[in-house]
Amino acid sequence: MRYRVKLSQRAERQLLEAVEWYEVNAPQFSESWYRSILQSIATLETDPHRLPHAREDHHLQMELRELHFGYRKRMTHRILFVVRDDEVLIRSI
């Protein structure tokens, strides 16, 4: 089964803020970082349930999961998402 992946407005804003940070602070990595995080997000199209529940999950009334994203051999971001039917909604990056 393939899932449709959508970003919440908050996640879109956070992604753009991260890209802007890279453009200012590490412009040589900006484009490749952006491509890499989009590739990681795209993996959610297949079997998002393979990823663990986020530590915040037990405080919420939803199954919040997380995808760790690393660039240059270290984790730099957590992508928090929920799965509903055939859709993955990214809540936060």
Rank of each mutant, 00 (worst) to 15 (best):
M1W: 11
M1P: 14
V5E: 03
V5T: 07
K6Y: 10
K6S: 09
K6M: 10
L7H: 05
S8Y: 01
S8Q: 04
S8T: 06
Q9S: 07
Q9E: 10
Q9R: 08
Q9W: 05
A11G: 07
R13A: 11
Q14W: 05
Q14G: 03
L15C: 07
L16W: 08
L16N: 11
E17N: 12
A18N: 08
V19W: 11
E20W: 11
E20I: 13
E20K: 15
E20M: 12
Y22A: 08
V24C: 09
V24P: 06
N25Q: 14
N25H: 15
P27K: 14
P27T: 09
Q28S: 15
Q28T: 15
F29C: 13
S30K: 15
E31T: 12
S32N: 09
S32V: 15
S32I: 15
W33H: 02
Y34M: 09
Y34F: 13
Y34P: 03
Y34T: 12
R35D: 13
S36Q: 05
S36D: 09
S36E: 10
S36T: 06
I37E: 03
Q39S: 14
Q39T: 10
S40L: 01
I41V: 11
I41T: 05
A42T: 09
A42D: 15
E45C: 11
E45M: 12
T46G: 12
T46D: 14
T46N: 14
D47L: 10
R50T: 04
L51N: 02
P52Q: 02
H53Q: 08
H53F: 11
A54S: 13
A54L: 04
R55P: 13
R55Q: 14
D57R: 13
D57K: 13
H58G: 08
H59M: 15
H59I: 12
L60A: 09
L60M: 10
Q61L: 12
Q61G: 12
Q61M: 10
Q61F: 11
M62I: 13
M62F: 07
M62W: 05
M62D: 10
L64V: 05
R65L: 02
R65V: 02
H68A: 04
F69S: 02
G70A: 00
G70S: 02
R72I: 01
R74H: 04
T76M: 00
H77V: 03
H77T: 02
R78H: 06
R78Q: 03
I79R: 03
L80P: 00
L80I: 00
F81M: 00
F81S: 01
F81N: 01
F81Q: 01
V82I: 10
V82N: 02
V82L: 03
V82Q: 06
V82C: 05
V82R: 07
V83E: 04
V83T: 06
V83K: 01
V83P: 01
R84L: 06
R84N: 07
D85Y: 09
D85G: 08
D85K: 13
D86P: 04
D86M: 03
E87L: 08
E87A: 06
L89M: 08
L89T: 08
R91P: 00
R91S: 03
R91Y: 07
S92L: 03
I93C: 08
I93Q: 03
